[in-house]
Amino acid sequence: MSARELVVLGTASQVPGRDRNHNGYLLRWDTEGLLFDPGEGTQRQLLLAGVPAAAITRICLTHFHGDHCLGVPGIVQRLSLDGVPHPVTAHYPASGARFFARLRNASVFHEVAELVEEPVERDGPIATGAFGELVALRLDHPVESFGYRLAEPDGRRMLPEQLARRGVTGPDIGRLQRSGSIRVGGRTVRLEQVSEPRRGQRFAFVMDTRLCAAVYRLADGADLLVTESTFLSADAGLAERYGHLTAAQAGQVAAECDVRKLVLTHFSQRYRDPAAFHTEAAREFGGEIVVAADLDRIAVPKRHSGGSRSSPSS
């Protein structure tokens, strides 16, 4: 199993269908498990996906329309039922705090797990740690909505041949990484001589929104972009009116932002042929496109070498 992957729990917009559950996406990122927009039925979808509640370390809500949050009560209660031992942090638009309070306390249960609320009030970083930096940016939807971006710090990849050539072995490798240079056999070896830049991985999550500057900032250089594509271009007027994207617009964003893998989701129930979303996006974007289906497991593309690109933080 990939250490970094997206587990798709649901892909329907507004209402679930026979083949598509309400929204729900779990990003497994090393030891972190970020649960985005758990709609109704998410608890059962986790079971079907073989993912325990203990895998969740953060809950990230983009906004408080039901298809993006009605699964919160079940998830919150499951954390306590399973006795999840670590704190779970909940991020959500601060303007919807009253809704989160209702969801969190929707029914009687014995609360054992520690749920830490960290509402999002403005654009910018909302969490940092060994996983990198988690940023939230306000989107353009009829209700306040935030997109999320997770960025790993840039680093360096050690080159075994260059290490051997300069006689750097064992504990000296770690010492070199920490200090930037060491003395070996009477000579100074610098980190840049035995390594190359390794760009940190980027993940972006864009849900209900019209095209806006924040969409491009979130998607910029993303290795994996998960984005709504509620409508097809024939219904672009509806997309604009209700604050959504078309598949073609999602493809356009991916192309302009140098995205490596594009995941389309949040499909209107009016459409019967999922392939149409791929077709539209592919006219704009020549990279890898995944039309998400419930219970898909989508790997984050492997790290690659190259210069760093800055991560938007404001």
Score class of each variant (00 low, 15 high):
L6A: 10
V8N: 13
T11R: 06
S13I: 02
V15T: 14
R18N: 07
R20H: 01
Y25I: 07
D30Y: 10
G33M: 11
G33K: 04
L35F: 07
G41E: 05
L48V: 05
A53L: 10
T57C: 05
I59C: 07
C60D: 04
H63Y: 11
H68W: 12
G71K: 03
V72Y: 04
I75H: 01
P93A: 08
S95Y: 08
F99A: 15
R104P: 07
E111L: 03
A113C: 03
E114L: 00
R122M: 01
G129Q: 05
F131E: 01
F131Y: 14
G132T: 07
A136P: 00
L137S: 02
R138F: 00
V143Y: 13
S145V: 12
S145Q: 02
A151V: 04
P153I: 02
Q162F: 06
R166F: 03
V168K: 06
G170L: 07
P171H: 11
S179I: 15
V184N: 02
V189W: 02
L191H: 04
E192C: 04
E192M: 03
V194T: 14
E196Y: 09
R198W: 02
F203R: 06
A204Y: 12
D208Q: 07
T209Y: 14
A222Y: 08
A222K: 13
T230A: 15
A234I: 12
A236C: 07
R241F: 10
Y242F: 10
V263W: 03
P274N: 05
E280T: 11
G286E: 04
G287M: 06
V290A: 05
V291G: 01
V291S: 10
D294S: 02
I298Y: 08
H304V: 13
G307T: 03
S313C: 13
